[in-house]
Write a protein that binds this DNA or RNA. Structure first.
Length: 584
RNA sequence: GAAUCUGUAGCUCAGCUGGUAGAGCAACGCCCUUUUAAGGCGUGGGUCCUGGGUUCGAAUCCCAGCGGGUUCACCA
């Protein structure tokens, strides 16, 4: 694509700077002794003696606005912590005769988006704005692309109003760097996400559990029910899968004798995308020996409550229209209780046929590949899950849908499993882990049967994992928490894309561009190539497909429009010849 | 995959039932030493997503395609 006039101008400015002996991309470091946040928070509340600390501050950031006047100007710079106003006076920057640094460099060659370092002192303007009175500045990076300009102001009632917001989701996600520059609330969301992970990590580490790493490339995928991404290793000439979970590896480590391990893991699932699903997502999984799922529920409550307090200073979090309170203890329901509560149907004694009929009665679509567990899950997913707004534990799942969980100690047909549901979505999943190798083998075999019935997500049998269990895994409680989903709740985000820096997107469509020489080789005069570009003909394939008379017309029209008086129009015959040549 | 909305200047958008493409911000030039979305005067900048059709005439109407959003479906 041809450059816009603003881009062309910035490239010219870059050259101008170099001519003036100013390197637009200097190598040496720039010393910083202050941050915007620190100055804005503390300067005004300091007494006179402490204000002296702000007499020589040095900070760096991106120019976000410029208000240029005759011999003094205002600008704003933004560093990682916020935005602050600069005041620049010509005769202070340029005490000598030569006013180039102010008149040319600052006023003409710097733009919004450029990164600069400044030194000066802090003061308060007549309008009460904390401002840096600049004594010297240095260009640190020239920006060649104009930023979208977002402005904020207070309206008459004192609310912040955003003008010209950079809000197109496609551009925001594809060019997250721009989103982060111009939308401060986006930076806040991601800071919160990192705080969330940090507070979990320190909670788990403080409990004495060990953070570990396990393979992402796995010869067999397991630990969850999902379709995997498949890849190939050349040297070993074997198929490998990107992990859909790390459960089976962490349990091997429990077999190995660690009594508490956890991993923050990127997992990959080759499934549909939606505002709750991205093909790669993050989970933390935790396994603790000698514990059960009741113990794990207590841990989840405590940990998530701590996260809420770390991020918000309170257990209450606003999510959409709801205020969610993470304060312990959370409600606990068995799955059958929850279904009965919301549908008035007791399904606890039903067989597969009866469940199938119940689903029909409740308008739930069923097909033959669904077993008993899946049917129950469908009912709960339709009638229970969406209604659970406050954090709630759902316990005791049917055995068919939980092939890695231990059979319930007292209730036939169920397993010791729970999920925490919050804002209508699952945020964690945990069991008393199945450690009986014979039982585990049978469960895998049932999965194989389901797979044959057409369930594409049925689990595969992992012989090495079974071998590990045969050596003996202690009774263990296991947990998985979806970090993205929890981040969505904790940051009041509507879409998973808002808590992922770089959500998966369709590839950007970009037209191939041919060089000028390729056009010239078909007989086109070089001076006509810019006209073709302007017409949107960027490569010779497009060119070859054009109709000669239309192209001739377009070229002549565009030549006039571009006011290229010195360029001679081609004749119709010439154009036809070029195209013919291009088609060969 | 389905429904629906949408594609106009660097950005945000207006442009009604067809009649020479508009605003604000950004950019460029001039004026202004503390401004508050700073202001004033002036200037430049558009394959109106693409391709067909209807028409004397299409950003606008029709058809097809492409891109994107949202919702639904799929999704432990």
């Amino acid at each position: 694509m041809p450059l816009s006039d603003q881009e062309v101008r910035r490239r010219e400015e870059r050259e101008e700077l170099e001519k003036l002996g100013i390197n637009p991309y200097p190598a040496e470091p720039f010393e910083i002794n202050a941050s915007v946040e620190n100055i804005l928070q503390h300067y005004n509340s300091e007494n006179q003696t402490n204000k002296a600390k702000y007499e020589d501050v040095s900070l760096a950031g991106r120019i976000m606005s410029q208000r240029i006047m005759g011999s003094a100007s205002f600008a704003e710079i933004q560093d990682a912590t916020g935005r602050i106003q600069l005041y620049i006076q010509r005769d202070e920057i340029c005490p000598e005769e030569d006013k180039t640094l102010y008149n040319t460099v600052f006023k003409k060659l710097l733009d919004i988006g450029d990164i600069v370092g400044v030194r000066g002192y802090v003061f308060t303007t007549q309008t009460g704005e904390t401002t840096i009175h600049v004594k010297s500045f240095k260009l640190l990076t020239k920006s060649l692309r104009p930023l979208p300009i977002v402005k904020e102001a207070e309206d008459e009632e004192g609310n912040m109003v955003t003008y010209d917001a950079f809000a197109d989701p496609e551009q925001r996600y594809r060019q997250r760097y721009v989103d982060l520059i111009v939308n401060p609330q986006v930076r806040e969301t991601f800071k919160k996400r990192t705080q969330l992970v940090n507070s979990m990590r320190s909670f788990l580490t403080d409990q004495g559990y060990m953070e570990v790493e396990t393979p992402i490339l796995q010869p067999l995928y397991g630990g969850a029910a999902a379709r995997p991404f498949k890849t190939h290793h050349n040297t070993l000439d074997m198929t490998l899968y990107l992990r859909i979970a790390n459960e089976l590896y962490l349990k091997r480590l429990i077999v190995g004798g660690f009594d508490g391990v956890f991993e923050f893991a990127k997992d990959f699932r080759n499934e549909g995308m939606s505002r709750f699903h991205n093909p790669e997502f993050t989970q933390v999984e935790l396994y603790v020996a000698y514990k059960d799922y009741n113990w794990m529920m207590d841990l989840v409550e405590e940990m998530v409550e701590k996260v809420a307090i770390a991020l918000h200073g309170t257990t209450e979090v606003q999510v959409g229209k709801n205020i969610i309170n993470f304060q312990r203890p959370w409600k606990r329901f068995t799955m059958f209780e929850a279904i009965e509560h919301y549908t008035n149907i007791d399904i606890s004694e039903m067989n597969e046929q009866q469940l199938r009929e119940t689903c029909k009665k409740l308008n739930i679509k069923v097909d033959d590949s669904m077993g008993k567990g899946k049917l129950i899950d469908e009912i709960f997913g339709e009638y229970g899950e969406p209604k659970l707004i406050q954090p709630t534990f759902i316990t005791d799942y049917p055995i068919e849908m939980s092939p890695l969980a231990k059979k319930h100690r007292t209730k036939e047909g169920l397993v010791e499993r729970f999920e925490a549901i919050c804002n209508g979505k699952e945020i964690c999943n945990a069991f008393s882990e199945l450690n009986d190798p014979i039982d585990q083998r049978e469960r895998f075999e049932e999965q194989l049967t389901l797979g044959k019935r057409g369930d594409e997500e049925a689990m595969v049998l992992d012989e090495d994992f079974l071998r590990a269990l045969e050596y003996g895994m202690p009774p263990t409680a296991g947990l998985g928490i979806g970090i993205d989903r929890l981040s969505m709740i904790m940051t009041n985000s509507q879409s998973i894309q808002d808590v992922l820096f770089f959500p998966q997107m369709k590839p950007e469509v970009r037209k191939k561009e041919s060089t000028d020489e390729e056009f010239v080789s078909h007989g086109v005069r070089a001076e006509l190539v810019p006209i073709l570009h302007k017409l949107g003909i960027l490569n010779t394939e497009q060119f070859a497909k054009s109709s000669p008379s239309k192209l001739h017309n377009d070229i002549c029209g565009m030549r006039k429009k571009m006011k290229l008086k010195d360029v001679k129009n081609p004749t119709k015959e010439e154009v036809a010849e070029w195209i013919e040549k291009a088609q060969q």
